[in-house]
């Protein structure tokens, strides 16, 4: 088991390196520093997860290895998302996520992904590799988040996250307190979206509205400001499942 965890960590590190277009072995050694163990690399090679190229200086994923690394990173970043957004953990979400990534099954990963509304980025802003669930992009009824653009006029929700690659947009929204955790109320959708957030009315483009994902708030509209959005049943049971692994 310990070995498996170590191997997972190496695969994860290699995925990060791949994202940065640098898969040299030296870089991997550097990343683990004193903890680096050559035998783990060897095992990865033996299990046909990676190969060494160009005089053994460059590491490369095999198809099998890449799929596995992708799954691990996906689990890690989704777990971060879950701890960060849903559980409001700010300090230890990284550590927590590292533990989950080795234990989550494919099925569980996909259901977390679905519950979170198929997020595209982890809290650090790194891309979450899409899974089957995202590719199908099924907006199932049981998912407890929805896009702002799918809300009814007058409905309120708590922002789960905002998928945006545009820094300027993020800065602006953040300054207006349109950010994860804030309660947002939809006032108007045409000719532009108008939302109310922390006492301010803000007009935004439809494109931005599509990028905002919101937790449904249960109960009547009028006390939306008072009640904390309760965890939905599904979310609760899923959480128990994860915690009681």
């Amino acid at each position: 088991m310990k070995d498996k965890v170590d191997m997972d960590e190496y695969l994860e590190a290699l995925w990060y390196m791949k994202e940065n277009n640098n898969m040299s072995k030296a870089k991997l050694v550097d990343a683990f520093g004193d903890d680096y163990k050559e035998e783990i690399l060897q095992r990865l090679i033996n299990e046909e997860l990676i190969t060494l190229l160009e005089d053994k200086k460059e590491v490369s994923f095999t198809e099998k290895g890449e799929a596995l690394a992708r799954r691990i990173v996906r689990a890690h970043r989704l777990a971060e998302r879950l701890l960060f957004d849903a559980m409001g953990m700010s300090k230890d979400f990284e550590k927590g996520a590292c533990e989950f990534e080795h234990t989550l099954t494919e099925e569980l990963i996909n259901s977390i992904c679905t519950m979170l509304g198929h997020p595209k980025e982890c809290p650090h802003g790194l891309p979450i590799p899409p899974g089957d669930c995202c590719l199908k992009a099924v907006k199932t009824v049981e998912s407890s988040v929805m896009h702002l653009s799918d809300m009814r006029i007058g409905q309120s929700g708590r922002i789960a996250y905002i998928n945006s690659g545009n820094d300027e947009e993020m800065h602006k929204l953040n300054g207006l307190q349109v950010r994860p955790g804030a309660i947002i109320k939809l006032h108007q959708t045409y000719p532009a979206y108008v939302v109310e957030c922390e006492g301010a009315n803000v007009a935004i483009d439809e494109d931005i509205a599509k990028n905002i994902t919101v937790w449904r708030i249960q109960g009547s509209k009028s006390d939306a400001h008072k009640t904390e959005p309760s965890l939905t049943k599904q979310k609760k049971s899923l959480w128990c499942k994860i915690m009681g692994k």
Binding site: L126, R179, G181
Partner: peptide, 18 residues
């Protein structure tokens, strides 16, 4: 550290504001 300073920054500020 594989981080995005802009996000951590706005996150910290948001916490403080809240």
């Amino acid at each position: 550290f594989q981080w995005n300073p802009a996000k951590l920054l706005s996150y910290t500020y948001s916490r403080w504001v809240d």
